[in-house]
Amino acid sequence: MTFQELEIKVQDILHHKNILRDEKLLQICHLLRDNIDYYDWVGFYFRNGDKEELLLGPYAGEPTDHTVIPFGKGICGQVAVSNKNFVVPDVSAQDNYIACSITVKSEIVVPMFVNGENIGQIDIDSNVKDPFTENDERFLEFVNAEIAKLF
């Protein structure tokens, strides 16, 4: 399925009135993981109120022990501070990487903004080295912009 086709499906999920926000996010995680062959773990992390930490939200993939991530720690924690996309072609080359699974080879994290404030991010792990392109970044920015309308 192309990113363009997935964008339509993401919008369809988000426009259902009788589904709770977390259920919509979970459906999006499964949609992306099931339809993009190099998306092996798809999840959301959100800022924990005024604390400088992220809490794990809905996700699709293997369970993770990383349910709380301090700002600055790991790729997700760095994105919480930088407010910028972070693409890691090879996680073994990253000093500040938090390993979730030995099978993960690369990662992409894209922040989500509401009224200019970084409220969280989408995090995707891949078991393939260097699969992410600028098209992935643009697509995930679209996904986050659509989700941000729910907040």
Rank of each mutant, 00 (worst) to 15 (best):
I28S: 12
N118T: 06
H16T: 10
Q27T: 00
K129L: 06
Q121I: 12
K84V: 04
L25S: 05
K84W: 05
G43F: 03
L56Q: 06
F71L: 07
D123H: 09
I13C: 14
R47Y: 00
S92T: 04
Q78R: 15
I108L: 02
V42R: 08
G120Y: 06
W41R: 09
E5N: 08
L25E: 07
P63Y: 03
V109S: 12
Y97N: 14
D40G: 11
E62V: 07
H16A: 12
R47H: 02
K24G: 04
F132H: 02
P89N: 04
W41T: 12
I8T: 08
D12F: 13
M112P: 13
V128A: 11
F3H: 01
S106G: 04
Y38M: 00
D136P: 01
K9E: 13
L26Q: 04
D50E: 00
T2K: 09
G120H: 06
F113E: 05
K105P: 10
K129E: 02
Q78C: 14
I13Q: 12
E7N: 13
Q27L: 07
P63H: 04
E5M: 07
A99H: 10
D40K: 11
E7V: 04
T64P: 00
E62H: 03
Y59G: 11
I124M: 06
L140H: 06
I108E: 01
D37P: 03
D136Y: 00
K24I: 02
A93M: 09
T2C: 02
E5D: 07
S82K: 07
Y59I: 12
G74Q: 08
L31F: 03
E107D: 10
V87S: 07
T103H: 09
G116E: 08
